[in-house]
């Protein structure tokens, strides 16, 4: 019993390496999601399936002066990025918050930032895979020609554009329960995709829907992406970045409130 004489000595604090923790956390978050078909298959398969159907099989016309196969890459790319980010953050957070796993992690010395960063980076990786697969399909089977720089710009825009949806996912993850989270995500995901003109070109949307589109983040992201391939509505691009930036901040604010609410309820 006398073997614990060191119990009260304040050992010099040796913090584990934050970078190492973040890398491990991200790696395992990625593996966790990759092995969960409800996430990995559905966020990848749905946009690709749409693309094959409407972009490749039926896509012999053009929209404006752009072929459908090109036009649908930014459109379904936005759709894919949104799905990967919303489900990648909200579903896991709501379940881990509500069913105690986050508590287990918080009882450990894990820095909380690693937990959130892992979810965001994981979503960015999936977004990259999704958009890359869309481009590959278009180039291979749809006769799409994308200059390397254009392709890189398109990929960069869409992947950067997943950040606002990660923020939104964190907000939803903090407000929803483990059971309601998937339903809540779909409640935003599907109607927003339609109204923002991701499934049907913006100019073909009914007038009142066009008006709604203007306040929807996916509309602004899709305009940025369309612009890269020369299919946008035109006008200055800054307003789209600003809208997405503002939206991100609002969502992070909601997540912060949710976090505080959790802290209060638990402790």
């Amino acid at each position: 019993m006398a073997t614990t004489a060191t119990a009260l000595e304040r050992l010099p604090l040796r913090r584990p390496n934050l970078v190492t923790i973040c890398l491990k956390e991200t790696k395992y978050e990625f593996l966790k999601c990759l092995r969960f078909p409800m996430y990995s298959v559905s966020t990848l398969a749905l946009p690709l399936m749409f693309y094959v159907l409407f972009g490749l099989v039926m896509g012999h016309q053009s929209i404006g002066n752009i072929s459908t196969a090109v036009y649908l890459i930014p459109a379904y790319g936005t759709f894919a990025v949104m799905g990967a980010s919303l489900f990648g953050t909200a579903a896991g957070l709501a379940s881990e918050r509500g069913l105690g796993w986050l508590q287990v992690k918080r009882a450990s010395p894990m820095p909380l930032v690693a937990y959130f960063l892992a979810k965001v980076v994981m979503s960015l990786i999936f977004s990259t895979i999704d958009v890359g697969a869309l481009m590959l399909l278009g180039i291979t089977f749809g006769g799409v020609h994308l200059a390397p720089l254009t392709a890189a710009k398109l990929l960069g825009t869409l992947v950067a554009g997943s950040i606002p949806f990660c923020a939104m996912g964190l907000g939803i993850g903090y407000l929803a329960t483990p059971n309601s989270a998937p339903a809540v995500i779909n409640l935003f995901y599907l109607p927003m995709s339609f109204c923002a003109g991701l499934w049907m070109p913006y100019q073909f949307l009914p007038h009142f829907v066009q008006r709604i589109a203007l306040v929807l983040p996916p509309y602004h992201l899709s305009q940025l992406a369309f612009n890269v391939v020369g299919a946008g509505q035109g006008g200055p691009m800054a307003i789209h970045w600003q809208t997405l930036g503002g939206f991100t901040l609002i969502c992070l604010g909601v997540a912060w409130v949710g976090h505080q609410r959790d802290q209060k309820a638990n402790g």
């Binding site: 050992l11 604090l13 040796r14 913090r15 584990p16 395992y28 593996l31 966790k32 999601c33 092995r35 969960f36 379940s95 881990e96 509500g98 069913l99 105690g100 796993w101 508590q103 287990v104 009882a107 450990s108 010395p109 483990p178």
Partner: peptide
Amino acid sequence: THVRVGAMMQVGRVPETL
């Protein structure tokens, strides 16, 4: 404190695919 402490807590669900 946390680096010197370990805890086994009751938890509803642990990530199952790891």
